[in-house]
């Protein structure tokens, strides 16, 4: 089954995302900020990254930029979790190499639909 790296500094969101994806049979690796996620992503390759944008230490956009620069992540789908209020974040994210976004708030079904769509 595909493996997914979930990144969020909010424990409740991370729990929800991980729980939902694990429930659907995906392998989920968790990280609570961009720096930690980058370390994880360097050690093991994953099929999809879902990251929050606003995080301490390293934000989601920087994470996407860093990941996209890694050869192993050249074509990997990188999704950001973002809110309606920040269209400019989507633009920044896209510019950094994001595949797309999942709009907060979302429910588990929306999350799974998007993930299934991306992973085919």
């Amino acid at each position: 089954m595909a493996s997914i790296l979930a990144v969020d500094d909010s424990a409740s969101m991370l729990q929800m995302v991980a729980f939902t994806l694990k429930g659907a049979g995906y392998d989920v690796v968790e990280a609570s900020d961009g720096l930690q996620a980058l370390e994880v992503a360097r050690k093991q390759s994953v099929n999809l990254v879902i990251t929050d944008v606003n995080m301490p230490r390293m934000d989601g956009i920087t994470l996407i930029k860093e990941l996209r620069a890694l050869p192993a992540y050249k074509f990997t789908p990188l999704l950001m979790l973002t809110t309606e209020s920040s269209p400019e974040k989507k633009q920044q994210g896209k510019a950094a190499g994001a595949t797309g976004w999942i709009v907060k708030p979302f429910n588990p079904d929306q999350l799974l639909n998007t993930v299934k769509k991306v992973l085919g």
């Binding site: 500094d9 909010s10 969101m13 606003n54 995080m55 301490p56 809110t83 907060k104 708030p105």
Partner: peptide, 18 residues
């Protein structure tokens, strides 16, 4: 200031989701 923003942002995201 970033930390304050992030806290507000997380509460917003979580409360919407939950």
């Amino acid at each position: 200031i970033n930390a304050i923003f992030r806290a507000a942002h997380s509460i917003k995201g979580g409360s919407g989701t939950f």
